[in-house]
Simulated scan of single mutants.
Amino acid sequence: MQNPDEIFVALRDAMVELFELDPEQVTPDANLYEDLEIDSIDAVDLIDHIKRQTGQKIAAEDFKAVRTVGDVVEVVNRLVNPVAP
């Protein structure tokens, strides 16, 4: 299992590679759309990358509420570390 810090580092590295971003830009508070200029096609690429890395699909409704890098980390954390009932 990965903790949120490890997820953030992996996500930041992926975003730097996928979208040619400066690593310093990718912070937990960075807004995907305004600060990082991620568009809907980029978001699909990011979702696909997460699916390949985790082996799990992110539900579209989970990703609709995502606004910041920290939000993505939370979604991925819930995917890879499900809460036991």
Rank of each mutant, 00 (worst) to 15 (best):
V80I: 13
V44Q: 08
N3H: 11
D42E: 12
G70V: 04
E37Q: 14
D39G: 07
D13R: 06
R67Q: 11
F19W: 05
M1P: 13
K51Y: 12
A14D: 09
Q25W: 06
T68H: 08
R52P: 03
Q56L: 15
E20Q: 13
V73I: 05
I58Y: 03
G55C: 09
V83P: 00
V66G: 01
V44L: 14
V83K: 08
L21S: 04
L32H: 01
E37I: 08
L36Q: 06
A43Y: 09
I47S: 12
L32Q: 01
V80Q: 01
L21F: 03
A84F: 03
P4K: 12
V76I: 15
I50W: 04
F63T: 02
A14K: 03
I41C: 10
T54R: 03
R12Q: 12
V80C: 03
R12K: 14
I41W: 09
A59Q: 12
E6P: 07
D62P: 03
P85F: 00
D13C: 04
P28T: 06
L36V: 07
N81L: 04
D29A: 15
Y33M: 07
D5T: 15
E34R: 11
V72K: 00
D5K: 15
V44A: 11
N81F: 08
E17L: 14
K64C: 06
F63R: 01
A10I: 07
I50C: 04
Q53R: 13
E61V: 10
L36Y: 02
K64Q: 13
N81M: 10
D39P: 07
E6V: 06
E37Y: 11
E37V: 09
Q25G: 08
V16I: 11
V73G: 00
V9G: 06
E20I: 09
V44S: 07
E61Q: 13
N81Q: 09
D13H: 09
Q56S: 15
V80A: 05
L32W: 00
L21R: 05
V83H: 04
R12G: 01
P82A: 02
V83E: 07
S40D: 08
A59Y: 09
M15P: 02
L46W: 05
D42Q: 07
D48F: 15
V76E: 02
V16M: 06
R78H: 10
P82D: 01
E6K: 08
A43S: 15
I41R: 08
I50R: 03
E17P: 07
E34D: 14
A60D: 15
V83W: 02
R12F: 05
D35N: 11
